[in-house]
Design a protein around this nucleic acid. Structure first.
Lengths: 339, 339
DNA sequence: TAACCTTACTTTACCGACAACCTGAGACTT
DNA sequence: AAGTCTCAGGTTGTCGGTAAAGTAAGGTTA
């Protein structure tokens, strides 16, 4: 049996197609009896409207698109789940595109597969792409860069201040040699956190050692390996604290330190960023700067929906972190080389 | 400026719309010079075909839909990332729907928003829904149940054998009191693993203690809490081994044991399932049954694409696990209560 | 009772792309 | 010279909905 269309329902119910359309869409111009009858026939035939026809006519897909290069890690699933829920509240669906292919991205955006766009992370959307999207009035929210114009906004996390505050906290505890575990340099958050960290070191006159900036790629396992390598080289004179670019890195770092027999926080303190769900259950529980992911997700979807509805122009919103002190940080041990 | 359509390109290039269509879709009936000219005009106007029009006419969206209630945890992101990549290879996109609303799910499936469907987990897709989908010839692959008919297949993990083998391994080490940390009972994998575990206990004549089946919900934090509660009750006579329904549960369990001063594997052994990326970096590194997630993702997408292309009817494929012995399991300590 | 509303639909145009079929010009056949 | 091909592209119908405009029957008003 081929797919049932609105025409089949109309024929079966003995009415015109627009009557069926009106009945299904609750347009209040029909005789209640007719409406009932049509709905009953539609139900009996298991009729479900074809969304492609609907979309073409209305110009709306009722879908928001989330474009990202990766979904790895707790940050993403929290973000995606919360955004999905929030979309559903507004009657939208969320289409998650995990890809690095700019062709794919642009043809889905400009081809109107979605009514609004959420963009995260190092997607290499450049000035020209933004120009084109702006001309087409594509409603967009960026999560990884501050931006705003008539049809585009952003909801970002103030990573610079977060990095600064975390570093300042460690300095306040008495740490003088603090390493930073970085993500990749194309990641806005990673760079900002590092800048904040460097600013704090400068402010307190602590040495900026190039070697103390470690590439961890924001992942647990790659950080684990990076720290093991780092310990092999710097084992004789380890920093008394590591500031990790995110919680996953912090955990990987702690695992590596433990594997080499160091105690956290007894010998070394480790601080992360994000406060992902697991952070509090880790051993030791992580000291971290809380990134209000759920809030970011909700603000993003709300802002985008309001732009689509024409109720709002693009805004640049910034969320601030909150230092959560748990068990992975402590004053440095007496024997620590504080030079 | 309103959106550029194929008509605008046709007018600007001084040709008909079908000539534009033919030029863009590489239909080889045009004078090369005309084709070049049309493509140049399209490029200049930044023309991108509207996918809704395309989809309506062709009846194809070039999208596969992944329907799930959750994306939490390493299992999902590995699955999603691998499926996305594999879709891209076939020229498809992957639309991830995170929802529990069956209305939403069915209207997206039956409304033809996607060309093929991948379903995971306790979605409560019942016989009736399957009937309707079958009548509509919706190409579908299930990841959480074995199923096959003309248009529907499945790619599942043999969780029963995995559970059986893991339990047998612990029994072989000498463990006599083994607890199982379960997910929820609506989850096929969780139930199957538990059945395998119970079968092994029965086979070796070990006692089946109802109390030793713990609800951990397949999450790290809820397992952590569940095990803490369990220890409070059974602390005087703890099992010598825990078989956790997945790696996240195993980690939560280990964290809880450590928090109460137990050593793993010195005092208690813990075994998980999946072998997620982090498992090997955990301390202690997890003994686990490897679930070939990437393989499942690839087989799923390939199978679905072949069904869509009409090259294949629904098959029920099963993947088997592989026991990976690492540091979280050991022979039971002498003092363990082996009664 | 003619003009005018309502009510309750039906007819038809349209969204943007694609594709089946049509056409007009020149080349080739017989 | 009439008929037939081929080439290169144009015309038009179509996918499945929605919505603006049209209409027929009955009721209301002046």
């Amino acid at each position: 049996m081929a797919k049932i269309t609105i025409r089949d329902v109309a024929r079966e119910a003995g009415v015109s197609i627009s009557t069926v359309s009106n009945a299904l869409n609750d347009v209040d111009v029909l005789n209640p009896a007719t409406k009932m009858h049509v709905l009953a026939v539609a139900e009996r035939l298991n009729y479900v409207p074809n969304l492609n026809g609907k979309m073409l006519k209305s110009g709306k897909t009722m879908m928001l698109g989330f474009f990202t290069t990766s979904v790895s890690g707790p940050y993403f699933y929290k973000l995606i789940e919360t955004m999905s829920r929030q979309c559903e509240r507004h009657g939208y669906g969320l289409n998650v595109f995990v890809t690095k292919d700019k062709q794919v991205i642009m043809s889905n955006i400009l081809g109107r597969r979605v009514d609004g766009v959420i963009i995260y992370e190092e997607l290499k959307i450049d000035e020209h792409d933004i120009d084109v999207m702006e001309k087409d009035k594509i409603k967009t929210v960026f999560l990884d860069r501050e931006f705003s114009n008539d049809t585009m906004g952003s909801v970002t996390f103030d990573s610079y201040t977060a990095g600064y505050e975390a570093a300042k906290y460690l300095i306040g505890l008495g740490h003088k040699r603090i390493a930073y575990i970085s993500g990749v340099d194309t990641m806005f958050d990673s760079v900002q956190r590092r800048e904040g960290y460097l600013a704090a070191l400068r402010e307190y006159g602590l040495p900026l050692d190039e070697d103390y900036i470690i590439q961890g790629y924001f992942e647990e396992d790659s950080t684990f390996n990076a720290i093991k390598a780092f310990i092999r080289v710097h084992g004789h004179k380890l920093p008394s604290a590591f500031l990790a670019g995110n919680d996953l890195s912090a955990m990987g770092c702690i695992e590596a330190l433990k594997a080499h027999g160091y105690e956290v926080p007894g010998d070394v303190s480790v601080v992360g960023f994000d406060d992902v769900d697991i952070a509090r259950y880790f051993s030791p529980p992580l000291t971290t700067v809380r990134n209000p992911i759920a809030r970011q997700a909700i603000l993003t979807v709300d802002h985008l929906v309001r732009m689509i509805q024409g109720k709002e122009t693009g805004q640049s919103q910034t969320l601030t972190g909150e230092l959560i002190v748990r068990g992975s940080s402590h004053v440095p041990p007496d024997h620590a080389d504080q030079g």
